[in-house]
């Protein structure tokens, strides 16, 4: 954030420090450091191949379709789980926020189940669902549903009373108030939950694949390590990083489009 109302005297390096040029340069420097330390045998090249070697292998794996296939598996399961979690989380969150009786009924269950770290369920879920897709999707759903549910709930609870009363003075019934006022007013909070869960969805998909799978990028990374294909492992990790970054970018774009009205009002002070 460079807030400058008064033009500053140009100093050498001003452009470099005032933009992200410095940050990208740091990344480049770290990569060079990596490359050099491997080449000069400062670090063991068996556990750390040179960055150029990794990049080469990455492109190979991209060309022959390996990465695409593995990611197709991972992302397919991840999105099914994420979508189910969104439907359940938003639905139940809205109902709990809007109807006190549903809140009273479900809140204790939610608070009892939620604190358990999701990976702890994996052995149990394998007992019931086996090691196939349904297990991984189920694990993703369990992890993702809580942030969405709780943020939706608190979003609904924080809808200004006056907006609901305004709608009532115009003669709106319960269902119409929910649709026309509560849902749009709670949307920013719902999106906060969706963003947290998007990260969780990727994490849990990878963990589930590492525990029990024969495809997917998590399986690919673990299997590469176990069969001493260290360069493949690094290529997989880097690909995962890129995918995570792109997913977040896509999410921010969608959020910005849906909540365009919120750009000025909600984050005025931010």
């Amino acid at each position: 954030m460079s807030v400058r109302s008064v033009p500053r005297r140009r100093v050498p390096g001003g452009f470099f420090l005032d933009t992200k040029t410095s940050g990208f340069t740091l990344v480049a420097l770290l990569l060079v450091l990596w490359e050099v330390s491997v080449r000069t045998a400062l670090v063991d090249s068996i556990s750390v191949p040179a960055v150029s070697t990794v990049a080469e292998r990455f492109i190979e794996l991209l060309r022959d379709g390996t990465l695409v296939d593995e990611f197709a598996q991972t992302l397919r399961r991840m999105f099914v789980g994420y979508l189910l979690a969104a439907i359940i989380g938003i639905g139940v969150g809205l109902l709990m926020g809007y109807f006190d009786r549903i809140h009273n009924l479900l809140e204790p269950v939610v608070e009892l189940i939620r604190p358990l770290p999701t990976p702890a369920y994996i052995p149990l879920v394998i007992l019931f669902l086996g090691v196939g897709d349904s297990m991984k999707i189920f694990i993703t759903v369990i992890a993702c549903v809580w942030p969405i549910l709780l943020n939706t709930y608190s979003g609904v609870r924080n809808v200004p009373r006056i907006q609901i009363d305004t709608a009532r003075t115009f003669g709106l019934g319960n269902a119409a108030v929910l649709r026309k006022v509560v849902v749009p007013a709670a949307a920013p909070s719902v999106f906060t939950g969706l963003r947290i869960s998007l990260t969780l969805a990727l994490i849990l998909s990878i963990i589930a694949e590492m525990v029990a799978s024969n495809n997917g990028i998590g399986y690919f990374i673990l299997f590469a390590q176990r069969s001493f294909r260290v360069t493949d492992m690094y290529a997989g990790i880097i690909a995962l990083g890129i995918i995570g970054y792109l997913l977040n970018l896509l999410f921010v774009r969608i959020e910005g489009r849906v909540l365009h009205w919120n750009a000025g009002s909600g984050r005025k002070g931010a």
């Binding site: 200004p160 006056i162 907006q163 709608a167 115009f170 749009p184 009205w261």
Partner: peptide, 26 residues
């Protein structure tokens, strides 16, 4: 009924026209 806190009674996700249209939609 017109609320004292009018700024809160307007819907921030609606433009002026859409806010006014709320009066007929309902």
């Amino acid at each position: 009924y017109l609320f004292q806190q009018y700024s809160l009674s307007l819907f921030p996700w609606r433009t002026v026209l859409q806010n006014v249209a709320f009066g007929v939609e309902s």
